[in-house]
């Protein structure tokens, strides 16, 4: 296992190409941002559903608060155009 990693590392270090090409890195960035947004929405969503269960009027507010972290992904999308 260790040898395999060593070989891989030498290969990566010796090749002139970057290990992660720019477009792949951008895709990763967006993906990680989406992951973060999803994690944030988990908590907010749970709380929002709780509030809505007690009081139907909270639906609109709950929905807005739940999708707020989605802005993270939108901002991360900028990376795609920068690359």
């Amino acid at each position: 296992m260790l040898e395999l990693i060593m070989t891989f590392a030498t290969f990566v270090l010796q090749s002139s190409e970057p290990a992660i090409p720019p477009t792949a890195a951008a895709a990763l960035a967006v993906g990680l941002a989406a992951f973060g947004a999803g994690y944030a929405e988990r908590g907010i969503g749970a709380a929002a559903v709780g509030a809505i269960a007690e009081d139907d009027d909270m639906f609109g507010r709950g929905l807005i608060l739940t999708v707020l972290p989605e802005t993270l992904v939108i901002l991360a999308l900028v990376v795609i155009f920068v690359v």
Partner: peptide, 12 residues
């Protein structure tokens, strides 16, 4: 599930 329970409990 603290978030869910807390939200409901606070409302009550």
């Amino acid at each position: 599930n603290y978030e869910y329970v807390t939200a409901r409990v606070r409302s009550r």
